[in-house]
């Protein structure tokens, strides 16, 4: 056994993910927040945008749910663990910083997927038909990885006060939702809005979900997947690199 080998470190990351799910995700407030937050945002826009078709809004709901749930808890895990000194425990164990970050990302990916599937079921219960189920499942998987990486990126500032991170997190997440074609179709956006939308990974996921439910898409499907994949790789690598630098300052 080479404890520093990739397969060993991935196994240890999985152990960290299981720990995260047990401690941080299997909690009623977290689960309720994960579902309620996007549902209420969705209802608010449903009442204010009566001319938009239900399929469009459900697609937006799925996009928001995955984005909010995959980024809900992960930014605060490092500060929580820093406060409780359990991060020091992990740092003295034979796991790399990359494995710790990967573990947190796996947990938030799984949480995001689980809650998002509930909203997909809600959409189907509302009478929508799912035209491209494989595309939807693949999109959820790709986007969950990407959004969990964004969640960990938000955790980079080396503070042990979760409230600081949550403020930063909200400042980044809410604007992203409004520029990602969730409430305003990309086709109806002004050019400056579209220029912002193409910078958000959430745009591509929402486009894929819309395609899965309605068969209509703005970008080619392959482009959506490639962008999500590339964003996942770049953000994950950047996040791991930044955490490597900031980890000692948390101790």
């Amino acid at each position: 056994m080479n404890p520093a080998g990739i397969s060993e470190q991935v196994q240890r990351a999985w152990a960290i993910a299981k720990k995260d799910i047990r401690i941080y995700y299997f909690k009623a407030p977290v689960l309720i927040f994960g579902v309620f937050m996007p549902v209420f945002l969705f209802l608010a826009f449903l009442m204010g945008s009566r001319q938009l078709p239900l399929a469009f809004l459900v697609s937006g709901l799925v996009g928001m749910t995955l984005f909010f749930t995959a980024t809900a808890v992960s930014p605060a895990i490092f500060p929580w663990e820093g406060q409780a000194k359990t991060l020091e425990r992990l740092a003295s164990c034979p796991v790399t910083v990359e494995a710790i970050v990967l573990g947190d990302m796996i947990a938030s990916t799984l949480f995001g997927i689980a809650i998002t599937l509930i909203t997909v079921i809600i959409g189907l219960a509302l009478g929508l038909s799912l035209l491209h189920i494989t595309t939807l499942l693949a999109a959820i998987l790709f986007a969950a990885c990407c959004f969990s990486a964004i969640g960990m990126l938000l955790a980079v500032p080396p503070t042990n006060a979760p409230s600081n991170i949550m403020i930063l997190s909200s400042l980044v997440k809410f604007p992203l939702v409004f520029i990602s074609g969730i409430f305003v179709p990309l086709e109806q956006m002004p050019s400056w809005g579209l220029a912002l939308a193409v910078c958000s990974p959430l745009t591509y996921f929402t486009d894929l979900v819309r395609y899965s439910f309605t068969g209509v898409h703005y970008f080619p499907v392959i482009v959506d997947f490639v962008v999500l994949g590339v964003c996942t790789v770049i953000i994950s690598a950047g996040t791991m690199c930044l955490h490597q630098r900031t980890m000692p300052r948390r101790m």
Binding site: P3, T86, S92
Partner: peptide, 27 residues
Amino acid sequence: GVVPETSNAYADLTAWQNLMLMGELYG
């Protein structure tokens, strides 16, 4: 192995779960 001054076991896990987590982290 490390025993720090401040207890840093996971308070939300049981003793057994903490030990099993360590087992996995040490392969």
